[in-house]
């Protein structure tokens, strides 16, 4: 498959602190094709951000340690690159957008300078040209050119996130990693920024990994979705597979917890219990203790991803051993929705 931008195999990342060995990522594998957007969905502590940081080999070390696995980005294994080579990759091939636009910008530089800096770093252009490019980028993200000479504190949260996006896009990356890019923003501003990102990705022929906990945002923007739980992918497939042919009990739990699908007054059906402590994961399937379908067998063996087949696309895989029984079916699918 020549069209792959990113191929992650069996990634394992631990954080080794004095008190505990935190198993943040426990064997994540996925592939990302050209011009596709993959949503990485999960709750706090599921290992989404650590996975994303690994792609740029940015996991803080110590205490973080990439134990094993390979991350092939455009044909090159990122984990084997030297520091210098990595710096070239960062920004040139891959750009990252973080959750908090307030802290992502340097307060003593004008936004124009910051975008131009990113352009200069990756392309051989003169200062003036870089500034011109910066203004162009600003216009692209919907900010008036003359604001290039303003400082970050003169911008609102949504505007700052636009600037951050402009910086990320300034060097024309092949892959954009967005870590909860709209979580800190208000709904109406979130809608604006999502719309903007959607258009830009199309325009630039980029691939994107979108990390989020919001299934609404995923539905809005992603082609493929991977649901992450306790450092493992429990279900992966196209958005249609995940939303309309849900197969993993955890994914089902996530949908049932959402209030906006329900009519008022109806009881929500939250997943019982809590996310397991990543320094002390339960044996077997990590979700088993919270799973309404769990049997004794679930806590014996870690389930592997298996193809779903049936009406789903060929991409759809689920890590649940309950499907050993061909008759097994989630409540959600039974109701003949």
């Amino acid at each position: 498959m020549a069209d792959l931008v990113l191929d992650i195999k069996d990634l394992v990342v631990h954080y080794e602190t004095e008190d505990a060995d935190v198993h943040a990522v426990n064997g994540i594998s996925f592939q990302l094709g050209k011009k596709t957007t993959l949503g990485l969905v999960g709750e706090t502590g599921a290992g989404k951000t650590t996975t994303a940081l690994s792609i740029l080999n940015l996991v803080p070390n110590p205490p973080g340690k990439i134990k094993s696995g390979s991350i092939v980005l455009d044909g090159v294994d990122v984990l084997k690159l030297s520091q210098e080579e990595l710096e070239k990759v960062r920004g040139n091939d891959v750009a990252m957008i973080f959750q908090d636009p307030m802290t992502a910008l340097n307060p003593v530089m004008t936004v124009g300078e910051q975008i131009a800096e990113s352009v200069e770093l990756h392309e051989k252009v003169s200062k003036q040209e870089a500034m011109e490019r910066a203004k162009e980028m600003l216009r692209l993200v919907g900010i008036a050119e003359n604001r290039a000479y303003d400082y970050p504190h003169q911008f609102s949260g949504g505007m700052k996130q636009r600037v951050v996006i402009a910086i990320a896009l300034a060097c024309n990356p092949k892959l954009l990693i967005a870590d909860e890019p709209t979580t800190a923003l208000d709904v109406t501003i979130q809608a604006q920024v999502l719309e903007l990102m959607k258009n830009l990705i199309r325009e630039y022929d980029m691939s994107m990994i979108l990390i989020t906990h919001d299934l609404g945002v995923v539905a809005e923007i992603c082609d493929d979705v991977a649901v992450v739980y306790a450092g493992r992918i429990v279900e992966i497939g196209t958005a249609d597979d995940i939303f309309n042919h849900t197969h993993h009990p955890y994914t089902e739990g996530l949908f049932d917890s959402l209030p906006n699908l329900k009519e008022r007054g109806e009881e929500l059906q939250p997943i019982k219990g809590l996310m397991p402590d990543p320094s002390n994961l339960p044996p077997g399937c990590s979700f088993a203790p919270r799973c309404p379908y769990a049997t004794d067998a679930c806590s014996k063996k870690v389930p592997e991803l298996r193809p779903v087949g049936g009406t789903s696309s060929s991409k759809h895989m689920v890590a649940c051993d309950a499907y050993d029984d061909p008759k097994f079916c989630l409540r959600r699918n039974k109701d003949g929705k």
Partner: peptide, 26 residues
């Protein structure tokens, strides 16, 4: 109206209401 239409809806493949983006910020 704008606030309601800005909520991202967690469904795929179904008919989605037309977005009414509001311009600018508070």
């Amino acid at each position: 109206k704008a606030l309601l239409s800005a909520i991202p809806i967690p469904t795929v493949g179904k008919e989605r209401p037309q977005r009414q983006l509001i311009k600018g910020e508070i």
